[in-house]
């Protein structure tokens, strides 16, 4: 009985839906504010994302007749569910995530792909040429960043010798952050580049390039459904950042400052914010690449980084 209650609280309150939604929306709000300042303007207030969410939820839902299908309606929810599920596998307060499994890294990799696949399905079923071409570009993009991302994770796994994220965090608590390990530094950079593509940020915002294909796969979504998409996207931001933190930046650590114990979640929040701000900076200093250029970039430069790292880890003990 206790386990069930625990599970429900974990998935709905902390670190599940409620917690990540609040933090995710806030982080994207901060991202937008900082973007504004980087572009020398005031930018929206940091709680703007909450207001946008409320606005979208209260708006009318208009679905074009060509898009009316079960798939079109269900994919936002599936994607939200998948991304919240990832959160349960991430170490947030301590090295132990809310849900424990033997090889949770594999589960996470799978679950992280579900939103991407949902976006594609939504785009293809929307019956709009923009949605379809956005989804088409997304397929290519997925093929490019996913390989790099998995390679980088494999490098970490090979170093730690475990497929469990908890073990990775414990390992780092003893041996120091993996990003400081010179063998894994290229992998960390590759993972950051892949995360930039996963989060659809410039220079890899190709699937939703607004000057070319409106809003890509999500063009035909409106009202509450779009709100769910946004929520899923905002949560994805913090989830991907959290995964990077757990993999390379030591995961949540508890500190004792002046006798009081700072819980690991504070550390987690600070580190994820730092990663989000890093991606914000990256997205403000570049132009968008073309899809073929992005593909080439991932498969040559980024993949090379990850492979170098992997070889180093395997060759240099």
């Amino acid at each position: 009985m206790m386990e069930v209650v625990d599970f429900v609280i974990n998935s709905l309150v902390f670190p599940g839906l409620l917690f990540v939604s609040l933090v995710g929306l806030l982080y994207v709000g901060i991202d937008r504010k900082v973007t504004g300042h980087m572009q020398h303007r005031i930018g929206p207030p940091i709680w703007q994302e909450y207001l946008d969410m409320g606005k979208l939820l209260s708006k009318e839902d208009i679905t074009p007749s060509a898009a009316q299908s079960f798939v079109f309606n269900i994919v936002p929810l599936v994607s939200l569910g998948a991304i919240v599920a990832v959160m349960l596998f991430l170490p947030v307060t301590s090295a132990q995530p809310a849900l424990i499994s033997v090889a949770d890294l594999i589960v996470i990799i799978y679950l992280l792909n579900i939103p991407a696949i949902c976006v594609m399905l939504g785009g293809y079923s929307s019956g709009s040429p923009f949605g379809a071409s956005g989804a088409g570009r997304y397929v290519v993009q997925l093929l490019s960043y996913e390989f790099v991302f998995i390679l980088a994770i494999i490098a970490v796994v090979a170093r730690v010798g475990s497929l469990s994220l908890g073990t990775v965090v414990v390992y780092q608590a003893q041996q120091g952050w993996l990003v400081l390990d010179w063998r894994l530094l290229p992998a960390a950079i590759a993972a950051l580049i892949a995360a930039q593509g996963k989060l659809l940020r410039v220079p890899f915002d190709i699937p939703e390039a607004e000057s070319e294909i409106v809003h890509g796969a999500l063009t035909e979504y409106s009202g509450p459904k779009l709100a769910i998409w946004r929520l899923a996207y905002d949560i994805e931001t913090i989830v991907v950042a959290g995964l990077l933190v757990a993999l390379f930046f030591g995961g949540p650590t508890t500190y004792v400052i002046g006798g009081t114990q700072i819980p690991g979640v504070v550390d987690f929040l600070i580190k994820t914010l730092a990663i989000v701000l890093l991606t914000t900076t990256l997205r403000n200093i570049m132009a968008r690449l073309r899809i073929d250029q992005a593909l080439k970039f991932y498969w040559s430069f980024a993949a090379l980084l990850a492979i170098i790292s992997l070889v180093l880890v395997l060759a240099v003990p």
């Binding site: 915002d205 000057s211 403000n284 200093i285 570049m286 132009a287 968008r288």
Partner: peptide, 16 residues
């Protein structure tokens, strides 16, 4: 032009 190639910072700075 910067907006068309997705370089929003340059877009904002040029218009400033």
């Amino acid at each position: 032009a910067a907006f068309q190639i997705g370089f929003n910072t340059l877009f904002m700075l040029a218009w400033r």
